[in-house]
Design a protein around this nucleic acid. Sequence first.
DNA 1: GTCTATATGGGGATAGAC
DNA 2: GTCTATCCCCATATAGAC
Lengths: 213, 213
Amino acid sequence: MTPAQPTRDRLLDAAERLFAEHGFDGASMRTITADAGANLAAVNYHFGSKSALIHEVFGRRLAPMNVARLQLLDAVLEETAQRGEDRPTPRAVLRAFLAPALSLGRQEGREFFVLIARAHSSPHPELQAHIVNQFAEVAVRFGAALQLALPSAAREDLFWSMHFTVGALCHTVVNTQLLTLMSEGLCTDVDEDAVLERLVAFVAAGMEGGLDS
Amino acid sequence: MTPAQPTRDRLLDAAERLFAEHGFDGASMRTITADAGANLAAVNYHFGSKSALIHEVFGRRLAPMNVARLQLLDAVLEETAQRGEDRPTPRAVLRAFLAPALSLGRQEGREFFVLIARAHSSPHPELQAHIVNQFAEVAVRFGAALQLALPSAAREDLFWSMHFTVGALCHTVVNTQLLTLMSEGLCTDVDEDAVLERLVAFVAAGMEGGLDS
DNA sequence: GTCTATATGGGGATAGAC
DNA sequence: GTCTATCCCCATATAGAC
């Protein structure tokens, strides 16, 4: 009868799922603790407040995802050097950025990515601040790598391109069911590798082509 | 002392502003009616419920924006025909789709567009349904126009491209302050025409280039 | 660490006078 | 159409026994 996971982890899992389903305001401590098979007071005991719980839900996933991004980027740069080429392709860099996000959506934290997208447009300033902090290093490293991949591009252009890319990514991860609806079932996200390649192709072309004209 | 606008309109204005600032759950009927200089019971009298108020806030802006999109699209197609060309350029079609959205953000309803983006990832299914309904005709007309502009593209590819485009658009309208932050002031949205052209260039290139490879 | 019971506050909605 | 007063519910958080 003893649960396999400690209460703290069960609370995080339940919170993640219910926040994704009902929103941060829509999921109450009552439903979260009930879903986790814990007592109503458990959240306050383990985290201190609901706000702190939200914070932890994000921290638990964002850190590993960004580590994966940086590792993939290192691999891309290393492989480029081994081949004796002086710069990576934009596609390779962009894939390193996008793949961990999409693959997070396919594993354990499928619901979690909804939360990231929602946090981007959240009225709670603490959430936006949290994201900015977590992404700061990633933004710097990938900004530099893209500048290397596209030496003739202005820094300003690269920032804008990354901005559009993040937008397409978030919308893709969160709202593909809406696309499925509008395309009457033609477009689905069952083949996530195919989605990744579509997205990479789109933003890479946008980035290279958008700069010329 | 009599207010220039009827209570109903003042309620809609206040609701739009406060929803944008504090979210749909964060802005209460009490703060909305107070901000509008109306009585607490006014929302229920004029709209029936808070949910119906939200519905009206969206309807008031979405309808004109989508009308503008369709008019611009008609103008593009007409001009194409006058020139004796058999198909419009993807850029022209995409500009007709994107311009009304960005220009809405520059006029009266600057705060409103935050709400659209938030509705996309909202846990309230009624909001998503509302958007789908309002966009149905636009999606069909622009889908056909893009197919005309890019005859060799598969329908599936066009749907995905439009999906990425909407994502980039929403993120741009809502979160450019976040970009300004990350770029340390290099990128701003003060010149909205320039933003539009950047976005058009990006998604047009993504659409044309993403299909080939 | 976990539970019960409760404090405290705010929410949406409505009845009924004006 | 507008106002007051109020109903009723649910939220977060905590105190204190176990």
